[in-house]
Write a protein that binds this DNA or RNA. Structure first.
Length: 679
DNA sequence: TTAGGGTTAG
């Protein structure tokens, strides 16, 4: 009767029994004391143990001890490299394997293809695909799935991808193989069509195959195709699982179809998949994109387990829907829960600071960004450019912009818009030209930015030039915003009739706000007749447009047509429209102080008033004459002067003057919109 | 061995 085999041999035959690194090390130690412990068979078996545990160092040592590594040994090392986040090493290893005369088989290709995707090695990807064909493994299920996944991941990779691969030593993968360049890959066929081609050619498909092709379609914007594929799955008796659902939910988020999204939600609940973290974050995002942020929060709140993406989805959902304070509060909660913020957290959160124009919070957030080493992340940097510009600090905005290594269309546009908002039209146009010179094609938003720049600087001819070039040179159809910018410019330049023509002949229906800008221009240029015409247009579309009432009342006041002005105000009161006083706020020593026009309730009001009197006296000494013309109420001059001096921004400046040291920067923020509400 | 979710400019 043969003796029972030693324990370690049993263990080697059932490698799944080894679950931890110490267990593997223990077995390894026992094994080297035996006679054939150093045999290639034992070494390879140990290598497989270590590589399954993603232990790269011991795997490398064992591999080095093999005089002639067999295909299995290569496979384990390549897999371990890929899993350890070293795709280039993985590919080098694959090239060496071929060089040593070992033929690649169905075991090794999935890891190699995954490495191609991670390294964004497009040329290598094509070579390996050809190698798969030469090995006759096109029909292999796992290899086919890995091929599709690779092409799906390579889809968005730009020039950086080609560069990364070109740094690698040129592979020589057998005879008859050509390495295609990046441009060939792009011009021949889209990555999505590669995914679909592999899918169609597969003799056997499993749920992974379907999920891969569905995700590929969804991520490439082929929404209809993705949905058709989900319906087709059923014909092969496969039911959508949590992978399918988390890939398909972003489609409904994108096309803003909350009904279909809810159907998927219901399906997930019925299958008990709704507590899956992936589905959870897709649901949060879908509801948020459909402006149903309460539903997003309900999903978030009920998740039994949350990872950093669940938190990020909810933070982004809040911020994108204008719930800035809620987004910031959730960020604090996330930190409190011990979840580390990632780059996406900051790029989602930065717009909240921008909209709240709280430079203090933005700077705090930037501190986190710097400590996390995310400063050069193009998403974060673009948001920071925008934040600094909107908080009044264009120099810092420019400095951050300069630190971005690879500018994309968004970061360029953020910088153009930053200059535009500050009235630096020449700089804005220079940046626009530089963007083109560096090979980044301006998009729809970039034209809004450059037209805004022209508009704020009164560059009528420049604006028309850009507007006309949009369609003829760039193939971009001008939208509402572009027409509005041109009309706004014409109005500001006093060409109100021309602006009226542009708006009237727009290919789309003008919104109330487009007409309102013209109405504002009519006020500035004192064209009562046209103003009445424009107001009719606004009230026809939107009888409750409060801004238009206010403007008309002001226009009549300007023209000293007090009776008509009073009629407008009466009409407003009848409709229940109430005036909300203008307000300004200023940050002093990490605290925000708000002031409303005419308000005397601030504890420091006395000091403010004194400071303002001193200041005013000196201003008048130096020749300042208050422009009471802009105070439009039907009251006497002395009252006009009084209401001018108690403007909320003056109160804020007065407070800042008495609480900060000389030479400090004072940043006052004012609400210029929403001065009225329907009460 | 292969598959899924969240981000910046208007």
């Amino acid at each position: 009767m043969p003796p029972p085999p030693p324990t370690f041999e049993i263990l080697l035959q059932t490698p799944s029994a080894i679950k931890t690194l110490p267990q593997a090390a223990q077995l390894h130690a026992q094994l080297i004391t035996t006679a054939n412990g150093a045999s290639p068979a034992c070494t390879t078996a140990l290598l497989s143990l270590y590589s399954n545990l993603n232990a790269l160092r011991p795997s490398l040592l064992l591999f080095a001890a093999l005089p002639r590594p067999a295909a299995t040994a290569w496979k384990h090392l390549i897999r371990c490299y890929t899993a350890s986040g070293l795709p280039l090493e993985s590919l080098r290893c694959f090239v060496r394997m071929i060089g040593s005369g070992v033929r690649p088989d169905h075991n090794v290709f999935p890891s190699v293809l995954k490495a191609c995707a991670s390294a964004a090695a497009i040329g290598m990807a094509r070579s390996v695909h050809a190698s798969v064909v030469r090995a006759g493994l096109e029909g292999d299920l796992y290899t086919g799935n890995a091929l599709m996944s690779m092409y799906a991941k390579l889809k968005d990779m730009g020039n950086a991808a080609a560069i990364m691969f070109d740094e690698m030593p040129q592979p020589k993968i057998g005879g008859g193989l050509t390495r295609l360049t990046h441009s060939e890959f792009d011009s021949e066929e889209s990555a999505l069509s590669c995914v679909e081609k592999v899918f169609r050619a597969m003799p056997r498909r499993d749920i992974v195959s379907w999920n891969t092709v569905i995700a590929g379609c969804a991520q490439s914007g082929a929404y209809e195709e993705a949905l058709r594929m989900v319906r087709r799955m059923g014909s092969e008796n496969l039911k959508p699982d949590c992978f399918t659902l988390s890939s398909i939910l972003p489609v409904f988020a994108e096309i803003v179809d909350v009904l279909k999204g809810k159907e998927i939600h219901g399906y997930a609940v019925r299958l008990g998949l709704h507590s899956d973290v992936f589905i959870g974050s897709s649901l949060i995002d879908m509801y948020a994109n459909c402006e149903r942020v309460e539903d997003s929060f309900r999903v978030f709140d009920m998740l039994p387990r949350r990872d950093h993406i669940s938190w990020n989805s909810m933070i982004a959902g809040f911020v994108q829907n204008g719930f800035f304070n809620e987004g910031l509060a959730l960020f604090r909660r996330m930190l409190g829960a011990g979840v580390r913020p990632v780059s996406v957290t900051f790029s989602s959160l930065m717009p909240a600071c921008t909209h709240l124009t709280t430079l203090r919070l933005g700077k705090q957030l930037q501190g986190y960004v710097i400590r996390g080493g995310f400063e050069r992340n193009v998403f974060i940097a673009s948001a920071l450019v925008d934040m600094y510009a909107k908080c009044g600090n264009i120099k810092t905005a420019r400095w951050i912009f300069g630190g971005i290594e690879q500018h994309d269309e968004v970061s360029w546009t953020a910088m153009i818009m930053a200059y535009a908002l500050h009235g630096h039209a020449d700089d804005a146009i220079a940046v626009f030209k530089q963007m083109e010179a560096e090979g980044v094609r301006p998009n729809y938003v970039a034209f809004i930015a450059v037209l805004t720049a022209c508009s704020h600087a009164g560059l009528v001819d420049e604006a028309w030039k850009y507007f006309n070039s949009m369609k003829s040179e760039y193939g971009i159809v001008p939208g509402l915003e572009h027409h509005a910018a041109v009309a706004d410019l014409l109005g500001r330049a006093g060409k109100v009739k021309r602006a009226y023509e542009v708006i009237s002949s727009m290919p789309m229906k003008p919104t109330g706000s487009v007409w309102s800008t013209l109405l504002a221009a009519c006020r500035v240029h004192r064209n009562v007749e046209l103003a009445e015409k424009v107001a009719d247009k606004i009230f026809a579309a939107d009888p409750d447009n409060i801004g238009a009432y206010v403007l008309m009342s002001n226009i009549y006041s300007h023209a000293k047509r007090w009776k008509e002005a009073a009629n407008v105000r009466l009409a407003m009161r009848k409709r229940g429209m109430m005036k909300l006083p203008a307000s300004s706020w200023v940050e002093i020593k990490n605290e925000v102080h708000g002031f409303i026009s005419g308000d005397k309730s601030h504890p420091a009001y006395h000091g403010i008033s004194q400071a303002l009197s001193v200041l005013l006296e000196r201003m008048e000494q130096e020749g300042y004459v208050p422009d009471t013309d802009e105070v439009l109420h039907d009251v006497d001059e002395e009252h006009k002067k009084h209401s001018l001096y108690n403007h909320s921004e003056r109160l804020a400046i007065g407070y800042a003057l008495i609480t900060t040291v000389a030479g400090s920067t004072i940043r006052v923020t004012k609400n210029i919109r929403g001065d009225y509400r329907q009460g």
